[in-house]
């Protein structure tokens, strides 16, 4: 697990920011980031860390902003069957599940 991300989450919380955490929980095929990779997102859409090679982050950040509002965690899946998978950097046949949760 990448601890810079958790430490950032802790610092941001301490600064009074709203925070969500996204974690790669499962991968199939050649996913770009291993299980346990994390992204921390604040209420303004700032983020740090990585859950994929690139644009999955965009979708995850958007979802995280909702989750910060609702407080309800969610599992997101991204797969190669999805046309966007190519664009989001899962071109090698990867598939990932990402758990997005509020930190409070």
């Amino acid at each position: 697990m990448d601890h810079t991300v958790l430490e950032t989450a802790s610092i941001w919380l301490g600064e009074g920011r709203k925070v969500a955490l996204a974690t790669v929980i499962e991968t199939w095929g050649s996913a770009p980031q291993p299980v346990g990779s994390q992204l921390v997102i604040d209420g303004a859409g700032h983020f740090m860390g990585s859950v994929s090679g690139g644009c999955v982050e965009g979708a995850v950040v958007t979802e995280a902003l909702d989750i910060i509002q609702t407080g309800t965690p969610k599992v997101m899946s991204f797969g190669v069957a999805d046309e966007t998978a190519w664009k989001v950097g899962l071109a090698c046949g990867g598939k990932i599940r990402v758990y997005v949760e509020p930190v409070s």
Partner: peptide, 26 residues
Amino acid sequence: MKAEILREVIEARAQRRGVAVVTDLD
């Protein structure tokens, strides 16, 4: 993730203790 759990994970790492966070995905 509750802030207490986050704190405990960061503290455990600083003290070289291994911990697992188990999340019920439902």
